[in-house]
Design a protein around this nucleic acid. Structure first.
Lengths: 333, 333
DNA sequence: ATCGCTTTTGCAAGCGTGTGCAAATGCTGC
DNA sequence: GCAGCATTTGCACACGCTTGCAAAAGCGAT
């Protein structure tokens, strides 16, 4: 029951009394078309409600204008913030975002990338999971750009944007030490992604360097509930830590709530806490969490800039600095 | 510098020793192709890394498989939750989501819809703002389905999914009254969207019916910060309310934090609070907020089901029930 | 082998657009 | 009026796919 097809350039041409090429050129920036012709075409297009068919255009130009965003757990504060930034910046340069949700199942990311190929996306930006090498190669071979955000992968070709997780973790150890904390702990999820592990290692190593002990606990996935469980585990030990670095702000929120409610611990007096991501909730007065900011804005800028860049694939590795946002969950400062 | 083009059906056909049609049919569910032929095609396709070009397919079939999601403030908990649900369900039925971000500027939604038309999206789902009537007509005339979620609009044609905001607000008045509250207040943003206003009116009307006074305060947009300001305004009055219904959970979070921290008010002992949306944070122990659940799952199901439905546009109006999730921010229960 | 039937296959037209090329047009200066 | 040039225009092909149609192939029964 397809009522009526969309207006085509042909119809606009007829109404404007020009050839179809003229219509095409009118909507192609930088094409040669006389001002008067353009005006008449625009008028006819306006009247008929004509919109260039980007499917056909993409077919011809070999450039769809689509960028595929591959991400899991979209509803998570950090992810949705990044997503929002990316879609906005992409729109600003005339591209459009295709959103593909992945889950934890095997091959989820690969399936997403295949979808990207089917729609001949100009690029794919991967924010979760890791694609199979063969699929990655397939994308690159066909000129599809690839961006990996916070997914450390060795293969060259894609642009990889990462944070200085390892060094950041060391900085929080310093802060804890300066606050007079002696028994440090790291609360992590079991996800085991490179960024999370880098934070863990950076923290443990830095603590060791200062001659402090650092307990590590891992549980579940990276969410509020896991943070509560981690609090259970860490705060019931007899050598209860007096400082906890949570791998993620969400973990930190769960941790703090459990610490205060179930253990009546006062933060930061009896326990210093730090997180990572600087999600919006970290600034809420209930948490007032000292944390590292994901430079979401810069990440998106870099990604989009690289996609826009026509020179052949450049150095392809960007290391960004995670700024420590100082709030009230660590003493001193 | 487009290295090499993607594999085409032609190349697969040659390798498999069949015609191009056979390849096409192999990838068209329900098409007539002999098992042996299909096998050989699949083998060749696999070997060459062939993926059907959906741009071309969409061009022919007049059905792109793209659904356009039009939304603002993606990074907000409720919006991102809905977004996540929708993309997942769409993927499940073989469609792909195109995400278009809108802002507060005039014509933002119209521009988004034009983008949807350019890509010949099969449907658009609007979660914020309202399109111009002429654009709506343009979409409908060309067979593009339209779904409005929580955007009350009068024009027929689109599917409109709404909640029983007005009635829900009445139920919370009952709950407040049962808790012994006498001075009711409604904390709203200035956004003035139909859903928000329906909650406000439902609340005020129900209060009146019970012979209770209901103060209304509006400020800023619907976020945490606005909630804090609203607390300032409402809690400094001499006839300080003893129950507040916040139009949104985000407002409620800001409100509660301000109430506790700046005014040392204990919830729910001295003040009952309710919200709307049931975002994840509402269940965090710091808030433990009694609130109405947006049936995100049902909304997404209904939307997708309607899109899948081939029968010509049906009744096109769905009213869903917002369940009251009882937690600790209202006395009694 | 022949017929009648069903299943499978290839041909070719078409979807709406971009663009190289050659023809047409307009303009300037004599 | 005309040569010389720059600008604008139209033609026609290509992009990769689907699908109606008719030809071909398979197959069981006579």
């Amino acid at each position: 029951m397809t009522s009526k097809l969309y207006i085509s350039a042909q119809e606009v041409a007829e109404r404007a009394g020009v050839s179809r090429s003229a219509v095409s050129r009118t909507f192609t920036p930088g094409a040669s078309v006389a001002p008067e012709t353009r005006r008449r075409v625009m008028e006819a297009a306006e009247a008929l409600g004509y919109q260039v068919n980007h499917l056909a255009r993409g077919l011809m130009r070999n450039e769809s204008g689509i960028v595929c965003l591959i991400v899991s757990e979209v509803a998570t504060p950090y992810r949705s913030a990044l997503l929002s930034m990316l879609t906005q910046k992409l729109q600003n340069v005339g591209k459009v975002a295709m959103l593909v949700n992945t889950d934890r199942s095997d091959g989820s990311v690969d399936r997403a990338l295949k979808q990207a190929i089917r729609y001949r996306a100009d690029a794919s930006i991967i924010m979760s999971g890791l694609p199979d090498k063969s699929i990655t190669q397939l994308c690159l071979k066909n000129g599809q750009r690839l961006v990996l955000i916070n997914r450390d992968d060795d293969q060259a070709g894609p642009l990889r944007i990462n944070l200085d997780d390892y060094e950041a973790a060391a900085r929080v150890v310093t802060a804890f030490a300066r606050a007079g904390c002696r028994r440090l702990a790291f609360a992590n999820s079991q996800a085991g992604t490179p960024s999370l592990m880098a934070r863990e290692h950076g923290f443990v190593d830095a603590a060791k360097r200062l001659g402090l002990e650092a307990i590590v606990e891992r549980y579940g996935w990276t969410g509020y509930g896991a943070g509560q469980v981690l609090a259970q585990r860490l705060l019931t030990r007899q050598d209860r830590p007096d400082a906890v670095f949570c791998a993620t702000d969400l973990l930190a929120c769960g941790f703090m709530d459990a610490a205060r409610r179930q253990f009546s611990i006062s933060i930061p007096d009896q326990l210093c806490v730090a997180g990572f991501d600087d999600i919006e909730q970290a600034s809420w007065t209930s948490y007032d969490l000292t944390t590292f900011a994901q430079p979401v804005d810069v990440i998106a800028n870099e990604a989009v800039r690289w996609l826009e860049d026509n020179r052949p694939q450049q150095p392809t590795r960007i290391q960004l600095h995670a700024n420590l946002v100082w709030r009230g969950s660590i003493r001193g400062g």
